[in-house]
Every structure is written in structure tokens, then in C-alpha cells.
Design a protein around this nucleic acid. Structure first.
Lengths: 201, 201
DNA sequence: CTACTTTTGGAATGTCAACTCCAAAACTTG
DNA sequence: CAAGTTTTGGAGTTGACATTCCAAAAGTAG
């Protein structure tokens, strides 16, 4: 599931010229950033409009309503976050590869001042009980993430570098859960210790 | 930190009669339930008013504004959720005690149809970047939760029932992280498997 | 019973934010 | 260039929601 070919909730079946696609992208990126920083409910369409430097009608030209924009943001974050980590998943079969991944995550949180938590998890948490389509989108993104971890762990198990009593499938689920939870704790406490501890364990 | 003696954000220093305290409680309980089901942003003061069966002025008599009500809800959930588990934490020193706790959590999620996630974690995730006071309140609640787990694990370690290479302090952090993350996954996927897997691991 | 405080009712206000609409520019294509 | 399509501007509409206000009822204490 790569970037949703577009058109999820775009009004009509308009064709997008290059310029149009760029504008659309600019809107999504601005929205993603704002929603990450202030949450979905804390981000108004007017905020996005300003940040992206577009007019109201442009937003509603590319997205049928705020919900459609939200879905585009979820797809974008899914590609950016999970996609951005996929190269590291491929190296996850060694302890060293695992450490690289861990350091990357910790570093990233530090740079953000431990704000925002997980861009995908936060969106999901805020939307799950309000917008079922969005919830399903987030669930899919998380499963994709889990798959990445699972592949790495399977490779590690194949090389016998994993405690044989541990099932890589279950371990992948647990790892993702611990990661998500640790990001939450880190966000609440504004301190990266929980993330470090959880990933080391 | 037991129930905040009250008056966090109540207007003035009114004295509460028994009747007043009951009304206030009714409002908090109704708000907690709605905010759990639909999120903070998805819950209007009018919703709370109706659910609690009170008038607008009653709400604003007991709470200076919606934020004050939110803080009361956080305190309430902290006492209800964490407080409600504290008896189990005391028994956490045996494998059996741990299993009881695990089953309780899984059962609880199943009963809820895997909706809502963690009442405390969800609130935190939604509020962290918008309301710093609320964020700190949630952080405190989570630390209290972690303390409970830590005490149990320490007792378990003292009895030698724990892998000696594992540090109970770090294990407590990790356990809470895994629990929070697993609740999120469970909520997103509407399936209790992640919770079961994570707690078993 | 009187004076005072707390509790309750519910209409009214004001702000803010999502969304609509009517053109006009800028492209594209034949 | 001409006709059709996509993109852009921005003012205007509508509804929702937090909060305020003015009393009135109920309860408490002396």
C-alpha cells in the first residue's frame, strides 16, 4: 500500500496538472505538520490555508472536506514515517542494525523536544472513535509498520541470533506496541528516557 | 496523589454542600464517559449537560471553564483506573498474580468491544500539545500507574521469580509502555490480540 | 422566621470555523 | 487562436459551541 493513488476524497474526477499536484502536496505537507504539532482538532482549515499559502477555494478544490484532508495526511505520514524507516528494517537482522534503528528513533524524539509523540499513533488516538474510515487507515499504517519489524525479526531468527523460545511474529507486535507506548510516555513526560528504556529491553 | 482535594478550577471558594458535591460528581462522571467514548474535542459542554441532566449554569458553577472540567476528568480517571488496579498490583509478585491482572485487562477491553483505548492515554494524547497543565496531570497519572507495576515487579524480584538480569525499574517502564501501545493497537484494529500478545511477552 | 449562601433554570451573546459561491486568471489542446 | 478545463481569489453564509447573565428556588444558620 503505497501512497493512495490520490483522489480518495477529491471532488469529482478532475485531472491534476503538475501545478495542481504541487499545490495539493503543499497543502498536505502543511496540514501534516500542523496536525502533528497541534492535533487534528487544534488545526483549522484556515491555519492550513495560511501555512500552505493558498486560498480557501484551493483547499476545497483538492479536498472535498476536512475529513478528506485528514485522510490524505494519514496516507502521507504512513509513507513518510514507515516508508522512511523501511531501509532500516532491511538491516534489522543484526543486533547492530537494531541499534541503528533504536538510535535513530531516540535521536529523532530528542530533536523534537519530545513533542508530538508518534505522528501516526497520535492521529489514530484522536480520530479512532470519531471517524471510522480514518481509524481503519491508521490501523493499516500500523500493520505496515509491524510488517517491517516482523521481517527484520524473522531474518534475525533465521540467523539464530534470537532467543529460540521467542516467536518473531509475536515479538514484532510487542515491539511495535512498546514503541508506541514509549513514544506516548516520552511525549507526556517530555523526556526520552522511557523510549530508550523500552527499546533496550 | 489521591483525588485532587477539589477546587482545582472551581470558580471562587464556594463551599460545597452534600447536594452540590453530588451534582459536581454527576457532571464529572458524565463528562468522563463521553470523553472516553468520543474524545475531548468530540464532547461538547452541551453533551455533558444533557448526559448529566443538569443546566448550563450548574456546569459553570462548579467549573470555571471546559478546561477545568477536563482536568477534573483526568483526576477522576486517574483514581478510577489506576486506583482500581492497585489491589492487583499488590498481588503482582507471583506469576499467578500477573496473570490475573493480564486477564482483567484483556477482559475489560473485550467488554468494551476494543473501543476507546486507555482512558488516560487517550486523554493525554489528545491534550498533550494543546494544554500543558493537562499534559502534566496525565504524566503524573501514568507515573502513578508505573509505580504500581514497579512495586509488584520488585516484590517478584525479591522472591527470585524474575530473570535476575532484568532490572525491575526498567521492566516496569517497559511494561507500562507495552501496555499503552498495545491498547492503542487494540483500539485501532478493534481486536484484542495485540493486547494479549504484548502482555504475554 | 430572617438573612445569607449555595444551587438551579434557561435564554441570550459572541466568536470561530467549516464550507459555499461566483467569477476570474492560467493552462491545455486541437 | 479558440474552446474547454483546471486553478485560484476571497467575500459571504451558516451553524455550532463556549460562555455570560439575570433571576429564582432551595438550603442553612442564627
Amino acid at each position: 500500500m503505497t501512497t493512495r493513488s490520490r483522489a480518495e476524497g477529491s471532488p469529482g474526477k478532475h485531472k491534476l496538472t503538475r501545478k495542481g499536484a504541487q499545490t495539493r502536496e503543499r497543502i498536505v505537507v502543511a496540514a501534516a505538520e500542523l496536525m502533528f504539532e497541534r492535533g487534528v482538532a487544534g488545526t483549522t482549515v484556515e491555519d492550513v490555508r495560511q501555512a500552505a499559502g493558498v486560498s480557501t477555494s484551493q483547499i476545497y478544490h483538492y479536498f472535498s472536506d476536512k475529513d478528506a484532508l485528514i485522510r490524505a495526511v494519514i496516507a502521507f505520514q504512513s509513507d513518510t514515517i514507515v516508508g522512511g524507516q523501511e531501509p532500516m528494517f532491511a538491516q534489522l537482522d543484526t543486533i547492530d542494525g537494531f541499534r541503528t534503528w533504536r538510535d535513530f528513533l531516540v535521536d529523532h524524539q530528542r530533536k523534537l523536544g519530545c513533542r508530538g509523540g508518534c505522528p501516526i499513533g497520535s492521529l489514530g488516538s484522536e480520530l479512532a472513535e470519531i471517524n471510522d474510515v480514518a481509524r481503519a487507515d491508521v490501523a493499516a499504517a500500523l500493520l505496515r509498520w509491524e510488517s517491517g519489524v516482523r521481517l527484520g525479526l524473522r531474518a534475525m531468527a533465521a540467523k539464530g541470533r534470537l532467543n529460540p523460545s521467542a516467536d518473531p511474529e509475536k515479538l514484532a507486535t510487542t515491539t511495535l506496541a512498546a514503541l508506541q507506548g514509549a513514544l506516548l510516555l516520552t511525549q507526556m513526560q517530555r523526556d526520552s528516557t522511557p523510549l530508550e528504556v523500552a527499546l533496550d529491553t
